[in-house]
Every structure is written in structure tokens, then in C-alpha cells.
């Protein structure tokens, strides 16, 4: 696995990890927790050799931890720990890489798929936002008198008298402006009269 011969530090570390693993196999939770935390930097370095994206690397590291836990009875404390761990890490990294290649061959990224749903009712909020923008653009194109009448009477829900006071238009003129504005909007969105 590792081509270079381990240094004295490496050997000392391996003996420590091996002892913790053996204790973990015997049910020592503290030693096992310490081992899993201590090997994390080592695993992250190994995984990064095969994986560029940090997020995906961490997924693989977690997969390695899960696998280590599942096969922990296969570790023989008479043998070095690091090659055992590195072999699991290597295997899981390759599996992740293969899975990714397989997915890439069969799947296409579609960001919109995450925003819209098969059930039209589920898209109501998104559609409402789009519709409000479109409507605001249409209202902006109305003649100023019609636009003002529409905003006061329909959007701000003022009475005709209040709107008349605010705008200075007569009640009759307001009625006509609102009616014409709605008719114009209907025509522009293609709705039936």
C-alpha cells in the first residue's frame, strides 16, 4: 500500500492506533472514539488524493468510518493498523469514484428540477412570484390616470370618494379609468373579456 518505509514516528503512531483499535474491539468506547478522531486527518489526506471537492471528500471519509466500524472484527492486532485502514480507505474511494462515473454516465444535471414539482399546486408560490412581476410590468405600461386609479381603488382598496380626494379625479372619471385599465390588462394577458 504505502511504498515508503514508515518512519519511527509512523511506527509509534501505528502501535498507538493498533492498541486503541484492539481496545475498541474489546468494547472500550473511549479508546475507540479517540482512534476515530485521531485517524480523521490521515483519512482526509488519503481521500483527497482521489477526490477534489471538499464536500464529496468528507462523504467518502464518513463512508470509510462506517466501513471501518462494520469490519472492525477483521482487524488482527498482531498486524500493523495503518495498512488495514489505508486499504479500506482506498477501496471506498475507488467505489465512490466508480459510483460517480456511473451516475455521470446516466444522469444530467437539471437545476430547475429542484425548483419545480410535478404537482402544479406545489408550484403556486413560485408561479405567483413570476405572475406578480409580469403584472407589475403591464401596469407600468398603462396611461398615468388609469394606473393611478387602478392602484388607489384596486390595490390600496380605497373607496371611490377617498381615491377622488387623493387623486383629484372625479368619481366618474375614476370609475371609467379603473374599468379601462382592467380591460387593457385583460387584453394584454390574453384573458377573455
Amino acid at each position: 500500500m504505502e511504498a515508503a518505509a514508515p518512519s519511527e514516528d509512523g511506527r509509534r503512531q501505528d502501535r498507538l492506533w493498533s492498541a486503541w483499535m484492539a481496545a475498541g474491539q474489546d468494547g472500550d468506547h473511549a479508546a475507540y472514539a479517540r482512534l476515530l478522531r485521531e485517524i480523521l486527518p490521515f483519512l482526509r489526506v488519503l481521500v483527497r488524493r482521489r477526490c477534489r471537492e471538499a464536500d464529496r471528500c468528507e462523504d467518502i471519509v464518513q463512508d470509510v468510518l462506517l466501513t471501518l466500524h462494520r469490519v472492525r472484527h477483521t482487524y488482527d492486532p498482531a498486524r500493523p493498523f495503518t495498512p488495514w485502514l489505508a486499504a479500506i480507505c482506498d477501496r471506498r474511494s475507488i467505489d465512490a469514484l466508480r459510483r460517480r462515473v456511473r451516475l455521470a454516465a446516466h444522469e444530467t444535471a437539471d437545476e430547475r428540477a429542484f425548483e419545480t414539482f410535478a404537482d402544479p399546486a406545489a408550484n403556486k408560490e413560485l408561479d405567483a412570484g413570476d405572475a406578480a412581476q409580469a403584472l407589475a410590468a403591464l401596469v407600468a405600461q398603462l396611461p398615468p390616470a388609469q394606473r393611478e386609479a387602478l392602484e388607489l381603488v384596486k390595490v390600496k382598496e380605497m373607496s371611490l370618494l377617498e381615491a377622488s380626494r387623493v387623486s383629484g379625479q372625479s368619481v366618474g372619471a375614476l370609475k371609467v379609468s379603473v374599468h379601462r385599465a382592467i380591460k387593457a390588462l385583460r387584453q394584454r394577458v390574453g384573458a377573455p373579456e
Binding site: Y32, A33, R37, L40, L65, L66, H69, T74
Partner: peptide, 24 residues
């Protein structure tokens, strides 16, 4: 997604003693 520290805690909590395999 699960935090790696949280995963380690979960694994530690479920680390019952295991019987080692005999040499192959």
C-alpha cells in the same frame, strides 16, 4: 448530511465488543 463528529459519536455509542476473526 451528517456531521463527521456526530457520526463518530454514533459509531462509538454502538461499538459493542466484537469477536476477532481467526487468521485466514
Amino acid at each position: 448530511k451528517i456531521d463527521t463528529d456526530a457520526l463518530i459519536e454514533q459509531l462509538t455509542a454502538s461499538a459493542a465488543p466484537v469477536r476477532r476473526l481467526a487468521p485466514p
